[in-house]
């Protein structure tokens, strides 16, 4: 029926017919979200990048060495991180991360320490991947490590929720559960969702407006209600019939009005 009338009335109403070629005239613009590789910090949930480490300090195995303390400047420099391969830097970083969450000084195997160790490696690798984006082996290792960390976080959440939350805060990781089901992002489905959101917004806005309108009318209505109740009560008394309006009823309305006015005042201030 709809199709028939629209065709008869011409091009003006053609849009109202939802035929196979229906095209919404709503001003909704869909922007396809850019794909973020899984190894990026935005996806892996790392809020912090690898921290800056003082390069003048000695390598990890030589920390606290008495011989190095008494050695001359050149030897110290040779044993410092500045002249060491990068993995020595990562080693120090991993040590620092583990120090944050260790249960005791000799703790090397608890879940927190495992996650801290992986986090250190992940952040160091993410840093490196920026420099060498074509290193596929590193990319695979990095992805697997991110997944392994996420899995362990999932377990930790189930075992000990408070520790899980504390660990997220300590290591600055964001944990998002995976969505219910996987689906590819398509233009049609996205537009459907956006249109739904748009309609929902309109509905909510109109409801809010109507609510506001009714709220504005409330004081006048309550005054009118007090007047009407008093009038009824007086009439009933004068006519000698049973009084159905109690004083408490009128007082309750007065109190409501007073509260409303006070609320308005406090909001204005």
């Amino acid at each position: 029926m709809n199709v028939l009338t629209s065709v008869r009335l011409g091009a003006l109403t053609l849009k109202s017919a939802r035929t196979y070629a229906f095209k919404s005239d709503l001003k909704i613009k869909w922007v396809r979200p850019e794909k973020i590789p899984c190894i990026k910090p935005e996806k892996s949930g790392d809020l912090e990048a690898m921290m800056k480490i003082d390069l003048s300090q000695p390598q990890l195995p030589f920390r606290g060495s008495k011989e190095l303390e008494t050695a001359d400047e050149t030897v110290k420099k040779l044993f410092s991180l500045e002249y060491a391969p990068r993995r020595k830097l990562t080693q120090v970083y991993g040590y620092e991360m583990k120090q944050l969450v260790k249960r005791h000084e000799f703790d090397t195997g608890s879940v927190e320490v495992q996650i801290a160790r992986w986090t250190a490696i992940i952040r160091a690798y993410q840093d490196l991947m920026e420099k060498f984006p074509r290193n596929k082996v590193m990319k695979v290792v990095l992805k697997e490590m991110i997944d392994r960390r996420k899995k362990k976080l999932k377990y930790l959440r189930r075992w000990d929720y408070k520790r899980f939350e504390w660990l997220l805060e300590a290591l600055k990781i964001v944990y998002k559960p995976p969505p219910d089901h996987f689906h590819w992002i398509t233009r049609k489905e996205s537009l459907r969702k956006l249109t739904n959101n748009y309609c929902e917004d309109i509905r909510q806005r109109r409801l809010d407006e109507y609510k506001q309108l009714l709220q504005n009318e409330q004081p006048v209505f309550l005054q009118e209600k007090i007047r009407a109740l008093e009038f009824i009560r007086n009439e009933q008394r004068e006519c000698g019939v049973e009084v159905t309006v109690t004083d408490e009823e009128v007082e309750a309305v007065r109190k409501q009005l007073k509260e409303l006015e006070e609320q308005r005042k406090s909001e204005e201030e």
Binding site: P33, L168, E169, V174, Y175, K176, P178, I185, K193
Partner: peptide
């Protein structure tokens, strides 16, 4: 205490469909 900050398990997440 980490809800909506670092822990998002209290909501149903979805695949990002619009930028």
């Amino acid at each position: 205490w980490q809800e909506d900050k670092k822990d998002f398990t209290h909501v149903q997440t979805y695949i990002k469909y619009h930028d």
